[in-house]
Amino acid sequence: MENVKTISLARENTKVSSGRKTYICIMKILMALSVTFTCAITIFIIGYVLFKGIPNISWELLSTSPSYLSGKIGILPDIMNTLYILLASLVIVLPLGVGSAVYLTEYAKNKKLVGIIEYASETLSGIPSIIYGLVGMLFFCQFLGFQTSLLAGALTLVIMNLPTIMRTTQESLKTVPQSYREGAFGLGAGKWRVIRTVVLPNCVDGVITGCILSVGRILGESAALLFTAGFAHTLNGLISIQNGVITSGLSSSGSTLTVALYVYAKEQGEFEVAFAISAILMILTMIINLSADAVGRYFNKRRSS
């Protein structure tokens, strides 16, 4: 960076032909425009949603269920559904994702197999969520007989988030020094013992980062949940609250915040509620981004010290 600066200072004193000058000028303008646009659009979307949404957030909205009798809308069922789906999918996806990452970095010797697994995980991360929703509906709801339920939605999200958890865990497993493993083996530990006591504790940062990324993705997901978890937020949300037990909530259908936002905005024209939900989602997104950064920094510091 520094020598670039000195060179460019020197350059200003030498003559550059006018053709080159216009080229440089045009490129500079294009870059300035693009960066300004990117920043402006981000600020606009965030500002607009927060400005329109925050005034509509009230304790009543957050703490009640929608009722046809009073004609009032509450999003408590949607919040609870989102939490249920988050918990259920994380609980299932974590062992699967971490396990397959451990297999890839610690066990797998067959290069072809590793290639196939990695290709599969890349493919999974490229598949659009609407296709997940469709297959989830066919497989979990119909074939396995879960019906349209939160559990089916959570399982669909498990497949979607598998590549994320796998990738982040794998990356942090690769940073565990080989000498740790060799030391443990040298002390006579078996492979499983080495993994359990040396390798896994050192990849916590990857797992946490993967979790945060997945939480963000699950919060924002809508297309995959429309047909698997359903969007009848009114009645089914009530059931899952009355029973209070998570399992009973999981077997009933219910909409998450994003799906509720879609239904309120597109099908019922309740834009105030929709904006309130988007403001909540936006704030959550920001918190997730910040915490992902903070976790990354914390573990980097700990590692380097």
Binding site: V35, T38, C39, I41, T42, I43, I45, I46, Y48, V49, G216, L219, G220, E221, S222, A223, T258, L261, Y262, A265, K266, F271, A274, F275, S278, L281, M282, T285, M286, I288, N289
Partner: peptide
Amino acid sequence: KVVETAVKLLAGIPSVVYGLVGMLV
């Protein structure tokens, strides 16, 4: 750093929120 944070936020916004803003603005 600032612009990168903005880009990350943009990536994290749920697609329905894009839809809502698009629909109303």
